[in-house]
């Protein structure tokens, strides 16, 4: 059986300036993701995480390698893959409702007004933004804007969700709230998710597998860590699980030590 998402031999280089050697961001990245899996990718800046996400989204073309989703090669952006951008990327002249409706209409252009409105309302409610439908993004807080971004990505019911550090700009309190919401939604929809994050605790809470990237340049996918914690973990209680600190220490050790030396050791 072929996996839902397959990535083979992915490599990204940039041409060298003034005859210098080409800059290799990452090389020989291979992984698979099963349907319904939640995967987080962690690594220091410069290892190419965003580039990998953009390749999966179809927004960028790799220098080498192939990626396949549901058996078809990824050759460009598609409604199959919803993206939540790092800086929400909402259209400031559209209301909350308008932003989400724009996405919905892009996917289902034949739907009637009422159907679109009902669908949009559903997702607004899902991210707990009921009451803010007619506000413009400039009238929302950072956390609310990010929620709209999430709602917009979910509303098109994509095969796969790609999130680029979606909570990086939020404060700890807000982040915690949205994380909980995301957990609920994802568990409810059985969404396949690929997410970039810096936050180790967030990765442990949300993901089934954690990809660890070594440092760039010449970064590689060093380790794939399976999350040992049970599926019904919650933010409030997971740190009581004995396996929590085991996996947490492992991840932090990697980030502090092994990510640097991995390339040398390999």
């Amino acid at each position: 059986m072929h996996n839902f998402l397959q990535v083979q031999g992915l490599r990204k280089t940039f041409p060298g300036l003034n005859g210098a050697e080409d800059l290799v961001v990452f090389d020989d990245v291979n992984f698979t993701i099963d349907r319904g899996e939640f995967v987080c990718i962690i690594g220091h800046s410069g290892c190419g995480k965003t580039t990998i996400l953009n390749v999966l989204a179809g927004l960028e073309v790799p220098t080498d390698g192939h990626s396949f989703i549901d058996g078809r090669e990824i050759s460009g952006p598609s409604l199959d893959r919803g993206v939540v951008f790092q800086a929400h990327a909402l259209m400031p002249w559209m209301t909350v409702r308008g932003n989400i409706a724009f996405a919905v209409r892009s996917k289902w252009p034949d739907w009637s007004r009422e159907k679109v409105d009902a669908h949009v309302q559903q997702y607004i409610d899902m991210v707990h933004l009921t009451g803010s439908e007619d506000k413009k993004p400039s009238q929302l807080s950072g956390g609310m804007k990010q929620r709209v971004g999430i709602a917009r990505a979910f509303a098109i019911q994509p095969k796969m969700l790609l999130l680029d550090e979606p909570f990086g700009a939020l404060d700890a309190l807000t982040r915690g709230n949205i994380q909980d919401e995301l957990v609920t939604i994802v568990r409810g929809t059985q969404q396949t998710v690929f997410m970039i994050t810096h936050d180790v605790d967030e990765a442990i809470l949300l993901s089934d597998k954690i990809f660890l990237m070594s440092n760039g340049p010449r970064a590689v996918l060093a380790e794939i860590v399976t999350n040992p914690l049970p599926k019904d973990r919650t933010r409030a209680t997971m740190h009581h699980d004995p396996k929590f600190y085991e996996v947490r220490n492992h991840l932090i050790d990697f980030l502090v030590h092994r990510s640097k030396t991995y390339a040398a050791a390999a």
Binding site: A57, S78, F85
Partner: peptide, 9 residues
Amino acid sequence: WIDVTRTLE
């Protein structure tokens, strides 16, 4: 914004 339109085809 352009990227958003691309992902939404």
